[in-house]
């Protein structure tokens, strides 16, 4: 029971981490909370869902399509909605409000085009499980956990080993100086959104499989936002640690106390964190945290 809960918690934490990474990447560069991120995750889930329905049971195609599709949506989002504001030197608060607008716009576009149905992914993994030291562990949980781990490690390698990755970390500290070094800031911001979008696509598919696909599912990502705040907005390791902590705690609360109290618990946790550690576990930015 304990081990099973732990793995489930870790896998939910992994999904939270995937989502939180997107928030943190954008926050680290542009200092605003991109509330459209949840909506991009929702779009990723729809893309994944429709692909898996057409190419029955090919999770690979579904994931790949969701990654590419969500990355394209994220890139459109930043190019059409944020870059014009950034070029006019709009303060982060304006970007945040715009992101809320984008989110409402996209959600309603989904209502108008796809409708308000709840879709559930075909039961690829849902029922199967593996035995592990006497505990039954769902294959989905295990797969989500491993996949999240690989994706996040890949991102870490990209950020630490490549020129563009190093430039992203540099720009997160001082964007003006990065441009003195020859970094085209609009292009770098584009890369950041493509990365955030790709992670949104993965998270969307896993969320869709675990729960359902529906227009407002993006709001689940408020959990990821909590994870990012706990870890420290703008910090990638922080986002991962925050996601995993939240996932594990929530699962234990659901299993050992009550699942009704789970969300009350998460939101209380973030309030306590903001009071005690306003910058989160690893964050260093205090301003504009909303």
């Amino acid at each position: 029971m304990f081990l099973q809960t732990l793995i489930t918690g870790l896998s939910i934490g992994g999904i939270y981490a995937l989502m939180a990474v997107g928030y943190s990447l954008v926050f680290s560069i542009l200092n605003f909370s991109n509330f459209a991120h949840g909506t991009i995750i929702m779009l990723g889930a729809y893309i994944g869902y429709f692909l898996i329905s057409w190419f029955y049971s090919s999770l690979a195609i579904s994931l790949l399509g969701a990654i590419v599709g969500a990355a394209i949506f994220a890139l459109l989002n930043v190019s059409l909605a944020y870059i014009p504001l950034i070029n006019r030197k709009a303060p982060p608060l304006y970007l945040m409000i715009t992101s809320m607008g984008v989110s409402i716009f996209l959600e309603n576009m989904v209502y108008v085009t796809v409708g308000s149905h709840f879709y559930s992914f075909p039961e690829i993994f849902k029922k199967s499980s593996v035995s592990f030291f006497g505990s039954e562990i769902s294959t989905l949980d295990l797969f989500a956990l491993i996949f999240s781990f690989i994706a996040i490690s890949g991102l870490h390698l990209f950020l630490t080993r490549t020129k563009m990755g190093t430039a992203i970390r540099a720009a997160s500290y001082d964007m003006t100086v990065a441009s003195l070094n020859g970094v085209n800031m609009n292009r770098l911001i584009g890369v950041v959104f493509i990365l955030a979008g790709a992670f949104a696509g993965i998270a969307g598919v896993f969320l869709g499989i675990k729960y359902m696909v529906y227009p407002t599912m993006g709001w689940i990502t408020s959990k990821a936002y909590i994870a990012a705040v706990i870890g420290g907005l703008g910090s990638l390791p922080g986002a991962v640690i925050g996601g995993v902590i939240l996932g594990i705690l929530e699962t234990f609360v659901s299993v050992y106390i009550s699942s009704v109290i789970r969300d009350v618990f998460s939101f209380s946790l973030v309030i306590i964190f903001l009071v005690i550690l306003p910058a989160g576990l690893l964050g260093k930015y205090l301003e504009e945290k909303v």
Partner: peptide, 8 residues
């Protein structure tokens, strides 16, 4: 004032 990337 140098403006190094302190996080690098």
């Amino acid at each position: 004032r140098r403006r190094l990337y302190a996080n690098l």
